[in-house]
């Protein structure tokens, strides 16, 4: 529904609006640590990335946080100390993520201690299929091939999903009338309106014959979904009262620690007549 709503507003406004770059006198908050950790039911190693925020008008260079103590433990008493493989990038050694287990990430950096907990959902939800179709140039589509993924939601409310898409191994770059924008790779879904049903997810990527689509479906817990959902809100402009995404670090750190299951499918676009 969100998509249609945005479409409504955008089409109404674009008729008359115009854009101009302006210089603003923005507040600069002190740097804050950003912790980005994920853990899946796929083979490791799993990575935790530590960096710092910068001022809005600074260059997009985000200092790595080195020399931190990073630990992941599960609810069976198993713990793994992560190794810093390059500045700010920490990796697990022999930890194997298990569906249904709960994981705790602990980070000790620059004299402060951060911790977050995430439970990996018990189920992995397979992608049933991927279909392609050809669309002519129109108000909604650029001419080309489009794909749709099908999956079946398990019975019971409370299933949350994220797709990631790679086209020919790369993150897709969208062409908005000449503006090439590498969009975020956050394609979210939940079962609020579709619990227990077989359903589809439409992607807006414009493809050509021969393109290879690699699709992952992440089955998330509610907290992880809320993080991604509010992250998308921030990326989309933040709304009336923008604030940082809902994180399981609370407001002690930016970023998130999420454990989720992953399924994959890869398909190549074959021309139709």
């Amino acid at each position: 529904m969100r998509t249609y709503w945005i479409l409504t507003i955008v089409s109404a406004l674009l008729l008359f609006s115009c854009e101009e770059v302006i210089e603003l006198d923005l507040d600069n908050a002190d740097p804050e640590i950003v912790i980005e950790g994920t853990l899946t039911d796929q083979a490791g190693p799993y990575t935790v990335k530590l960096s710092e925020s910068v001022g809005f008008y600074d260059d997009n260079v985000f200092p790595a946080v080195s020399g931190a103590v990073v630990r992941i433990s599960d609810d069976n008493g198993y713990a793994n100390l992560l190794e810093e493989v390059e500045p700010g990038i920490y990796q697990t050694s022999d930890l194997q993520g298990q569906r249904g287990s709960t994981y705790r990430l602990e980070v000790e950096a620059n004299g402060a201690f951060y911790t977050a907990v995430s439970e990996m959902p018990e189920l992995a939800v397979p992608i049933d299929s991927i279909s392609f179709r050809y669309e002519e140039e129109s108000l909604f589509y650029k001419e080309g091939y489009y794909f749709r993924a099908y999956f079946t939601d398990p019975e019971g409310l409370g299933d949350y999903y994220r797709f990631t898409v790679l086209v020919n191994g790369e993150v897709y770059v969208f062409d908005f009338d000449g503006d090439l924008i590498e969009d975020d790779n956050l394609w979210l879904a939940d079962d609020k309106y579709t619990d227990g049903n077989s359903q589809d997810y439409d992607f807006p990527h414009t493809l050509k014959p021969g393109d290879v689509v690699s699709l992952q479906l992440h089955h998330l817990n509610e907290d992880t979904f809320d993080y991604y959902r509010t992250l998308v809100d921030v990326i989309d402009g933040g709304g009336v009262a923008p604030s940082n995404p809902l994180s399981n670090f609370g407001d002690t750190a930016l970023g998130y620690f999420g454990a989720f299951s992953v399924t994959e499918m890869e398909r190549t676009v074959v021309p139709t007549n």
């Binding site: 804050e32 910068v54 600074d58 985000f62 604030s243 970023g255």
Partner: peptide, 12 residues
């Protein structure tokens, strides 16, 4: 509410 800074998540 304007930003007070920026950071990186998944290269975004």
């Amino acid at each position: 509410t304007f930003p007070v800074g920026k950071y990186q998540i998944e290269d975004e």
